[in-house]
Design a protein around this nucleic acid. Structure first.
Length: 567
RNA sequence: CGGGGUGUAGCGCAGUGGCUAGCGCGCCACGUUCGGGACGUGGAGGUCGGUGGUUCGAAUCCACUCACCCCGACCA
């Protein structure tokens, strides 16, 4: 490609709306253009890179026995009713009607369709296992798109689905996919953390996310610096500091005028926060529920949602709290019987707690479970935090932000049972197929790779996913000898299979070309100029090299190959 | 959905009631330059997001509305 013919142009200044490095650099280098909120056009440079990413993913999926296919993005809504996911996705799914008024969906994912395909083709255990995958556009009506390609409403995903006879088979498919994912991210120069993740309301047992640790990420990952433990904060379990269980003292009412928060309460009464109990009210599918946890801990809303088996969970509104007869700021489980009470096991780690008295400006001292109050359910709803201890090795846990680039799930038989995908086992008995699903955000890989690989001058493309390998600069293109030598070199590079972007602009100053070369971040830069031609040489330089080297014109192809490690 | 903000030329921005709406970059033509974002001369380019209103007169004031950005909520 000649830059004089390239449709895109680079931006001299940083776009003011872009906060993250990948967003900023992709806009500046002319990789993407926004069409609507969370909707982007992939411009020619980005598209070349994305196709390379897709090819890497394809190679690894094929190596893991995946079979590529392509399913429709446009799907009958009826299919989503059969699994109950029309409701589960809610406003996140794009819906439309056709000319006959039949409801359709733009697919956010493809479990329903792929399960139906397999249902029609797999009948016996002899047909299993099967792994199907596709590169497909997904549509999700995200409430708030952000950070360029990181969170968008239309994006390219590689989604794979495994079909096995039983859990052992699923374990094998799951491990194969996990390894394929590690290979993909390594080849794209994205150093991922594989973290335990929440499997969602419908998911089965295991689930792992692959995250690029970066401050601009949306997810919080809890990691152990000592052992391999890593988990999304939604899922993470930690050991919080244990406390003695003191001899129970008598319940005692105290006046706490104006105290509304745990921190204020602890300070006012001179006790540590861990000697208080915190009460939080949620609306679970509209029902007000009451959650209790030790005052120094926070509620993990994902764990709570899973425990309650509800679709929607949010903090209760003030009027809902009031209607339930609760006194915000001074609530406790003592005496509460008319609503569901969920408690974290931490309420019995320690004792003689300070709790609310369900009266304005009043608390109790010395509350103890179960002497003074009860719960309908006791289950882990605590948010693991840095400073808590690793439950595997006891080290102090750390926390980092991350961008999720891949996610794998063990689905079990939810979809096969809902959609009737069964096979006959060796005894001739009908069994539901055991499924797994595996997603990679292809367009998000591009963003993550740039987030990880850039410097103050621009992108530093990992060679396997660079749009071109070589940025060929012609200086003084109006000089015929330069134009001829550079044009000839350009043809020879392509003839040798080296993808080259040729900066043949006659009207751009040297500085403009060098800055654009750095911004676009192709791995190798070549410079043809009158000065270099006097030595019958060109200048060769890697994107991150301090210095360049002079290479005789005839040796350039070999030198480039050597620099790319393919010679 | 709550909070904050922005919509004026391809991009970035200025313009608080008064003549033909301006600046920088970019773009076109000619000339001079030519190794890290050159210079001169001359040009092209705008329903001031939209609708309605106030006014002799609106980019500017008012109302409504749409779009986009940031924070949060949300997020298989």
């Amino acid at each position: 490609m000649r830059i004089s013919r390239l449709v895109t142009r680079t931006l001299r200044d940083d776009p003011p709306e872009a906060e993250t490095a990948s967003h900023r650099l992709m806009l500046r280098a002319g990789l993407i253009q926004q069409v609507a909120a969370g909707v982007y056009a992939y411009l020619p440079l980005a598209w070349r890179s994305l196709q390379k990413i897709e090819q890497i993913v394809r190679e690894e999926m094929d190596a893991a026995a995946g079979q590529e296919l392509r399913m429709p993005a446009l799907q009958p809504l009826e299919l989503w009713e059969q699994t109950g996911r029309n409701a589960a996705f809610g406003d996140n799914m794009f819906r439309l009607d056709d000319r006959r008024g039949r409801p359709l969906a733009l697919a956010p994912t493809h479990e329903e369709v792929v399960t139906n395909i397999v249902k029609g083709n797999v009948q016996s255990y002899r047909d299993l296992p099967v792994i199907l995958y596709q590169m497909q556009t997904k549509f999700r009506d995200e409430p708030r798109p952000r950070a360029g390609l990181v969170r968008v409403r239309e994006f390219t995903m590689k989604d794979a689905y495994s079909f096995d006879a039983d859990d052992d088979g699923l374990d094998g498919s799951y491990q194969a996919m996990a390894q394929a994912y590690r290979n993909v991210f390594r080849r794209c120069s994205i150093p991922v953390v594989m973290a335990e993740a929440d499997s969602g309301a419908i998911g089965g047992k295991d689930s792992h996310e692959f995250l690029l640790p970066t401050d601009t990420g949306e997810d919080t990952v809890i990691t152990c610096p000592n052992c391999a433990y890593a988990a999304n904060a939604e899922k993470a379990e930690g050991v919080y500091p244990e406390q003695e269980r003191p001899d129970p003292l008598e319940l005692e009412e105290v006046s706490t005028p104006g105290i509304k928060t745990i921190a204020g309460l602890a300070e006012f009464l001179g006790v540590p926060e861990s000697q208080t109990l915190k009460a939080v009210f949620y609306a679970a599918d509209g029902e007000v529920v009451f959650a209790t946890i030790r005052g120094d801990l926070d509620v993990n809303e994902v764990k709570l949602k899973n425990a309650l088996h509800c679709n929607e969970l949010r903090l209760a509104e003030d009027d809902e709290v009031k209607a339930a007869g609760l006194v915000a700021g001074s609530t406790s489980a003592i005496g509460i019987t008319n609503i569901r009470r969920i408690a974290d096991p931490s309420i019995s780690k320690g004792g003689n707690f300070v709790v609310g008295a369900n009266k304005e400006d009043t608390h109790y001292r010395n509350a103890n479970y179960p002497r003074d109050f009860e719960a309908d359910m006791i289950t882990d709803i605590a948010l693991a935090q840095p400073g808590h201890l690793c439950m595997h090795c006891g080290s102090t846990l750390e926390s980092t932000r991350g961008v999720e680039v891949g996610h794998i799930f063990k689905l079990g038989t939810f979809f096969s049972e809902a959609l009737g995908a069964y096979y006959l086992d060796t005894d001739g008995q009908q069994q539901p197929i055991t499924m797994g699903c595996y997603g990679i955000g292809v367009s998000r890989i591009l963003a993550a790779a740039i987030e990880q690989n850039h410097d103050e001058r621009g992108i530093v493309f990992p060679p396997p996913i660079a749009p071109y390998q070589v940025y060929l600069v012609g200086l003084n293109m109006s000089d015929e000898s330069v134009a001829e030598a550079a044009g000839d070199l350009y043809d020879r590079l392509w003839a040798a299979g080296i993808e080259t972007l040729f900066d043949d602009r006659e009207d751009a100053a040297a500085g403009v070309k060098f800055n654009d070369a750095d911004l676009m971040g192709l791995p190798v830069r070549l410079v043809v100029s009158p000065r270099n031609l006097r030595q019958s040489s060109v200048e060769l330089r890697g994107r991150t090299d301090e210095d360049s080297e002079m290479v005789p014109l005839g040796d350039v192809v070999e030198a480039v190959r050597g620099m790319m490690g393919t010679g």
